[in-house]
Design a protein around this nucleic acid. Sequence first.
DNA 1: CCTGTTCTCCGAACAATATTCGGACGAGCT
DNA 2: AGCTCGTCCGAATATTGTTCGGAGAACAGG
Lengths: 170, 170
Amino acid sequence: MALDELDRLILRALQKDARQTNRDLATAVGVAPSTSLERVRALRERGVIRGYRADVSLEALGRDVQAMISVRIRPPSRRNIEGFREWVSRLPETIAVFVTSGRQDFLVHVAVPDTNGLYAFVIDRLTQRPEVADVETSVVYEHRRVPAIEPARDRDRGGPATSRHDGAAP
Amino acid sequence: MALDELDRLILRALQKDARQTNRDLATAVGVAPSTSLERVRALRERGVIRGYRADVSLEALGRDVQAMISVRIRPPSRRNIEGFREWVSRLPETIAVFVTSGRQDFLVHVAVPDTNGLYAFVIDRLTQRPEVADVETSVVYEHRRVPAIEPARDRDRGGPATSRHDGAAP
DNA sequence: CCTGTTCTCCGAACAATATTCGGACGAGCT
DNA sequence: AGCTCGTCCGAATATTGTTCGGAGAACAGG
């Protein structure tokens, strides 16, 4: 299950552009096409790569406003939690659902056309569910995703969160 | 900028598997390969498709614990907000950053090997920044992403959040 | 109703790519 | 050294991407 540096390079390249040709990928990571192909196949079979997704612009779809909605479920029984999770996952405004511990039980990430849509989502949809005890809306000004693979550095595991990495250049 | 049903079918298909061959995509959406190819190119040039990303399993990377960390910045000046955003985006534990309105200024989505790593992230990293006034950690039990494209139904825009969609089948 | 225009879609030809497979090479072990 | 194991490579083949001319539908104006 260990990933060597070649695997990491491949994962990083495929997170930037999953649709580049295998030839380009091979060139980018410095091996022969047959090698990179075999590695990619292995990564998929091992479950390291779960799939490939198109990154669709929400703005281009006319959904310019994003929000993170904190939801508290009462009582937080398994039945209520799972029921709400399934229901909210199927709403067209929803783009992600986090089931969490802490102050709230859910964080629902939504994208809507405008602030009206946001308001409507909260008051027309969420508050109609009886198990929803409390709702708190935070508008998302910016959403930045970060690639999950580190530049190089062998072995990421083992030293959790204590590696040198404090913003100041050494 | 309007998307017809064929565009939507293509976007949906590419969100499920962005690496399927153009032939398969064409078959799936019911057109000739040359047609789907042209549509996909147009969608990319229009910015509807921003790119293609490999979906990498965090568990396979040994990062089994996820959390959403709510951070309040004081004072919330532009300098502080942007400084913190850049800094936290570069931490290896960070997988997403939301800049928000509301109780907190940031929601930081992190993935770490274990709860120790989570604790270390908060007390070793976050609280070392002087502008961080308050931190609240929520463990993420489950993170579900939802495809951003609706099944079919012409025109998504115009009727924000008021479409029929309440879980109960008609 | 006809005609010209525009747009979308198609299918075949060509260029490029993915995929397979036998073997070379080096590391590690006895 | 001799052996085994694993990785990587390069050429051959099958599959795919890409281009382009033209057919057909939808539409507006006469």
